[in-house]
Design a binder for these strands. Structure first.
Length: 123
DNA sequence: ATCTTGACTTGCC
DNA sequence: CGGCAAGCCAAGA
C-alpha cells in the first residue's frame, strides 16, 4: 500500500498543486494512471498523507469533500485562507481555479504525455 | 472468499 | 446540477 505506485503518484500530484489552485479527484486519478480511480484517490486522501494539501482536492462540481478532517467548515476555511472564493453553497468556480500541471511538472512527476484532457468546457 | 461502503464520475431521465 | 443507476477500485467487516 505504501509502496503502491498509484498512491505515490497521487501524493506527488497533490503536493504539486500551487496555492490557491484546485484539482478534482477524477483528474488526479487520471493523471496518476487510473481512469476511474477517483474513489481510490478519496480513500488515499482519508487514509493518510500528512503535509499534503488535500484541501486543494475537490469533487468535479468544485464542491467541498464530504468528510474532510475538521468537516466542511475546516475545508472551507482552509480554501478561503488560500485566496479561493467559496460560495455560500460550499462551491467554488472550477473554471477559474482548476489547475493542470504543465509539461515540465508532468515530466517531473513521471506522467505520460497522453494525459491531456478536455476539461475546459465542463460546467 | 463474499458483501458492503465510500473525501467519486458519468450517463440517462 | 434536480434525481437515479451503473461503473470502477480498494478497504473493512
Amino acid at each position: 500500500m505504501r509502496s503502491d505506485p498509484f498512491r505515490t503518484r497521487v501524493l506527488a500530484i497533490v503536493r504539486a498543486v500551487p496555492r490557491g489552485r484546485l484539482v478534482t479527484y477524477g483528474q488526479v486519478a487520471l493523471l496518476a494512471g487510473k481512469r476511474h480511480g477517483a474513489r481510490e484517490v478519496g480513500w488515499i486522501a482519508h487514509a493518510g498523507g500528512e503535509g499534503i494539501p488535500w484541501q486543494r482536492v475537490v469533487n468535479r462540481f468544485g464542491g467541498l469533500a464530504a468528510g474532510f478532517t475538521g468537516g466542511r467548515e475546516g475545508h472551507r476555511m482552509a480554501l478561503r485562507r488560500e485566496g479561493v472564493r467559496v460560495g455560500v453553497d460550499d462551491r467554488v468556480d472550477l473554471g477559474r481555479y482548476l489547475w493542470w500541471p504543465d509539461a515540465r511538472t508532468r515530466r517531473r512527476l513521471g506522467l505520460g504525455p497522453g494525459t491531456n484532457v478536455c476539461w475546459e468546457g465542463n460546467l
